[in-house]
């Protein structure tokens, strides 16, 4: 059987002291729709090890999962490659009315890390990414350049950018172009 291919499989990661850009491929991603006040929501939270976050623009981290708030009744549950996240959620929800959809290949994830990560993202993201405003545990659905993304802030200077697979090539090219200023060797791309 042929190798699976992630959307940014051909992307050469950026690895400098101040800035790192790399795909985190093949994560398991499940879109969850459930009434947050329902028993099912509580049961799913228990199964995942963290209550479903209800604060807009936040995400919760539990062992093995990140649970991203996408809307009042919608979350993106992110787990390790190959993990049966859908099975865990379905088992917890039982017969309750939930929407559980495997969307693992719908988006890929780009990790942007390093001292210049905020500077890089600020070229294309209108949100205030200052640590006082958008620190660890924050999550946003926003635009990065001209692509819709889900953005999460992690510890230190790391961000994760969830981007639709079809936009991943565009976004990677844009990130490389915007990173020019922060790379010791100067422009990676030319016009």
């Amino acid at each position: 059987m042929a190798e699976r291919l992630s959307p940014l499989a051909r992307f050469t990661p950026v690895t400098t002291d101040d800035l790192r850009i790399a795909e985190v491929p093949f994560l398991t991603q499940v879109n969850l729709r459930v009434d947050p006040k329902s028993g099912a929501a509580a049961d799913i939270g228990l199964a995942l090890g963290a209550p479903l976050p209800t604060g807009p623009g936040t995400y919760a981290s539990a062992t093995g999962y990140d649970v991203l708030w996408l809307g009042p009744d919608e979350w993106l549950v992110v787990g390790a490659q190959g993990h049966d996240v859908e099975g865990v959620i379905r088992a917890a929800a039982g017969d309750a009315h939930v929407g559980v959809t495997d969307v693992s290949a719908q988006r890929t994830v780009v990790a942007v890390d390093g001292r210049r990560s905020r500077d890089l993202l600020a070229h294309g993201c209108a949100l205030d990414l200052h640590p006082r405003v958008f620190g660890p545990g924050r999550c946003a659905q926003t635009m990065l350049a001209r692509a819709q993304v889900v953005l999460t802030a992690r510890e230190s200077d790391e961000f994760r950018v969830f981007v639709r697979s079809s936009f991943a090539g565009y976004l990677a090219a844009w990130l490389l172009d915007a990173a020019v200023e922060y790379l010791p060797d100067g422009p990676v791309t030319s016009r």
Partner: peptide
């Protein structure tokens, strides 16, 4: 800005694109 040339408008591609 950098919204010109190849980056003028996002290009969406499928997994078979290459």
């Amino acid at each position: 800005g950098r919204d010109r040339g190849a980056l003028h408008d996002p290009v969406r591609t499928t997994s078979l694109h290459e």
